[in-house]
Design a protein around this nucleic acid. Structure first.
Lengths: 199, 199
DNA sequence: CGCACCATGTAAGAAGTTACATGATTCA
DNA sequence: TGAATCATGTAACTTCTTACATGGTGCG
């Protein structure tokens, strides 16, 4: 479970409540990780039991007490250990590729439609990353932790690089399908070579 | 749950047992989808209850009876409906990016090590795709279903494009870290611009 | 007046992985 | 002799999502 270590990572920035951790997730690592409050609260509790974080209860009236979690030395060590540990590459798990894989089951016209839509969806995500998210991250860097600037930018770049690769692939796939539209045989025979050349 | 539809997709090729479906997964869609037998067997049963597949029991001696599942017309329709339905883009969920995001917690040297290792892992996967997997897929195309050739190749290309983007990103990140090694301030100030230019 | 924000959680369910259970055949 | 292949499944567990439960404050 990487969530435990993701939470430790967040708490290296500063002590936070579960609610604040969720906000941190939403405003910064959103593009490659996410977690719900219902998962965060119990996980913080288990981190406390492991001695990796401590809890300070700040009483409030009219709403639940704030429970501020802070990382311990042991927690910092555990996090650094985890960072250095081998990490198998994340594998893709993409239902859209299943649709393309069994593309023979629908007319080519329909495939072109879903490819175009999928491309647009990825474009929207990039547009969001480049405006709202980039601004949020830059704000976080300025306000909270200038040291993190490089790394936060790098991860944003990786997420965008993935989306750009996806968009390019949609374009090339659509082009190939349009070309092979009339003569299916030609399509098949030259598909692979054509893809390589268009890259 | 996309697994149900993935199974329907597989069964559009030909009737199969759960065991054979697993082999199909392992030899063709492995690079963007996977499933365990313990998940496949119950899912096939539920597909049968939905009327999307039928089961034919072939008795055997010395080993469990073969249960061959075939897709029905209703199943084909359901699959086509699913293919055409809107598909939100798969989001990244990559523990490695968490490590980079909180890169301030370990020395730069250690980050260079894990970036190099991660790059190598992705290179290995591509090498496997381009040899073993490509051969398996090509075999499947020749033996079973030439119609699928274009689509099977396309999905392989997408998976490889993702890995190549990842590798490029590792390279650029390592370069930036090496440059900013001595003077952290310079590193931070120019990181973003430098990344853009190196792309 | 209704919605968003703050702040905590529990419970139920879906999806996926790992371990357990059985047992004959074939190949090195 | 021991591993891989064929062939079925169940049970336990982890991870993640969605729904439920409470309730005050402030804004438009």
């Amino acid at each position: 479970m990487s969530l435990k270590h993701a939470l430790l990572g967040v708490l290296t920035c500063k002590p936070m409540t579960g609610y604040e951790v969720k906000q941190f997730f939403d405003s910064t690592v959103q593009h490659f990780w996410n977690a719900e409050l219902s998962q965060i609260y119990p996980t913080l509790k288990s981190l406390e039991e492991s001695g990796w974080v401590t809890k300070e209860v700040q009483p409030q009236d009219g709403r639940p007490d704030r429970k501020v979690y802070a990382i311990t030395d042991a927690g910092r060590e555990e996090f650094a250990r985890w960072v250095r540990a081998p990490q198998p590459p994340a594998d893709l798990r993409d239902p859209f590729l299943i649709k393309v894989f069994f593309g023979t089951e629908v007319p080519v016209e329909d495939l072109l439609v879903i490819l175009r839509r999928q491309k647009e969806e990825h474009q929207k995500v990039i547009a969001f990353s480049e405006t709202v998210l980039r601004e949020k991250i830059q704000h976080g860097i300025r306000e909270r932790s200038p040291r993190h600037g490089l790394f936060w930018t790098l991860t944003l770049e990786m997420a965008n690089a993935y989306r750009r690769a996806y968009i390019d692939w949609c374009d090339r796939s659509m082009r190939l399908l349009e070309e092979g539209f009339i003569d299916g045989d030609v399509m098949r025979a030259t598909a692979e070579r054509a893809f390589m050349e268009s890259a």
